[in-house]
Design a protein around this nucleic acid. Structure first.
Length: 398
DNA sequence: TCTGGGGTCCTAGGACCC
DNA sequence: TCTGGGGTCCTAGGACCC
């Protein structure tokens, strides 16, 4: 039986918060974003969009396009508050919620709808939408579908305050006429490549993928993604549990472009320290560190380069990570002028599950370096057989 | 005084081991 | 001595999303 998955998206969430705080802003061109070097628009009102302002646009450019643009900094306190209100409201309808950020989520209402007195799905959803508005003054769009992908496409279909149901049989009618840029997962780069091939709509894209399984114009990954997404074969399972991060990192644009190695080094150390702090807070160990540098030269289009280094063991040891981070910096930094610097740790494992996730060699490094947080009994259970086997191999060789 | 910052996932070549 | 394929790890880069 197919599931009933909702994708709920708060419409211009950050702007809406400003409007709630100050209702005189309603109907005016409002944008949220920092002013100054490197500032960009994170979201803006529909009135601002009429002037060509959109999210991701440099702030200075937005103010040029719209002379009377009202610019506000994101209010993190209110964002947090309203985001919590949003999710706690939705928990009245279902406990199965996959959070995707502060302003959107998937909700699985299959059982709840089946057991509800209201049998009309449109009315059921309208009730959720209106109830949210009454309680919080927040506006949302809802997509309903048997898979997460189709639900996501549904919530984008009509904004603000839209409700769009996409059954598998509706895909052709609702999605095929759309421009390929509206395909979730197909971005700017792929869109322009596909348009160069004469593919403009989602329907055309589907047809090409289906009819030319062996052509090399479109990568197998995209082809497969397009077909399975549109045929409703992608996931309908929500990720309800907290998942360990895959990487933790930060990047900062420098106050001004610089090629002063010492000055940038000091800046870099602060970033490294903050990431080590986060790593510990998340109870993770890392085995790979990455340094990011963004070129200040416009001619190279602010090219970003990354430099990675693997450590000889999983660790959250401050000294070890810092030493590696700085030696990587000293190795790769020449005297180039840079705009941005970043530090990321990846290849993470959860400290508490470390034993089950580690290989024998990983463990041997820990043993040598006597990092004692691992439970010896647990290690013995896991590695006993391997220790015996390796020892006997060594003896045989001798 | 001209393009952020947080992530995830995929690809691909080279090294190295079996 | 020559040749090769599979698997895995390391590193760099790119695309995408919010």
């Amino acid at each position: 039986m197919s599931r009933i998955i909702l994708h709920i998206d708060l419409n211009t969430f950050f702007v809406r918060i400003e409007e709630i705080k100050d209702p005189s802003l309603v109907g005016k061109p409002v944008a949220i974003g920092h002013e100054g070097r490197g500032g960009i628009i994170s979201t803006c009102s529909y009135e601002a969009r009429k002037y060509g302002v959109h999210s991701g646009m440099p702030t200075f450019q937005a103010t040029q396009l719209c002379k009377y643009l009202i610019l506000k900094d994101p209010d993190s306190e209110y964002i947090h508050l309203y985001s919590n209100e949003f999710f706690s409201y939705l928990r009245n309808f279902s406990k199965k919620i996959q959070v995707l950020g502060c302003d959107e989520c998937f909700v699985d209402i299959t059982e709840e709808f089946a057991n509800s007195k209201e049998k009309n799905i449109d009315k059921y959803l309208k009730n959720i939408q209106d109830g949210l508005y009454k309680k919080t003054k927040l506006k949302c769009s809802i997509g309903v579908a048997p898979t997460k992908f189709l639900a996501k496409m549904g919530s984008d279909y009509k904004k603000p305050m839209g409700i769009t149901i996409i059954r598998k049989k509706d895909v052709e009618k609702l999605l095929f006429p759309l421009d390929i840029k509206d395909f979730y997962g197909i971005g700017k780069q792929t869109t322009s490549k596909l348009k160069a091939l004469g593919i403009n709509t989602i329907g055309e894209l589907y047809k090409i993928c289906k009819e030319n399984p062996n052509s090399n114009d479109i990568t197998p990954f995209i082809k497969d993604y397009v077909i399975s997404s549109l045929e409703g074969k992608t996931s309908d399972k929500l990720d309800l549990e907290y998942e360990d991060p895959k990487s933790i990192g930060t990047t900062r644009t420098l106050p001004y472009n610089s090629h002063n190695k010492e000055e940038i080094r000091k800046f870099y150390i602060k970033l490294v320290d903050s990431i080590i702090g986060k790593l510990k807070k998340e109870h993770q160990l890392t085995k790979t560190i990455t340094l990011t540098l963004k070129d200040a030269d416009c001619a190279t289009n602010f090219k970003t380069k990354t430099y990675s280094k693997s450590l000889n063991s999983y660790t959250d040891n401050e000294e070890k990570i810092k030493t590696a981070a700085l030696s990587l910096y000293d190795k790769v930094f020449k005297d180039q002028e840079i705009r941005l610097i970043g530090f990321t740790v990846k290849n993470l494992i959860n400290k508490h599950n470390a034993v089950t996730q580690m290989t024998f060699d990983d463990y041997m490094y820990h043993e040598k370096e006597s990092e004692t947080y691992l439970l010896i009994n647990e290690i013995n259970r896991k590695f006993n057989k391997e220790v015996v086997k390796r020892a006997s191999d060594v003896i045989k060789k001798k």
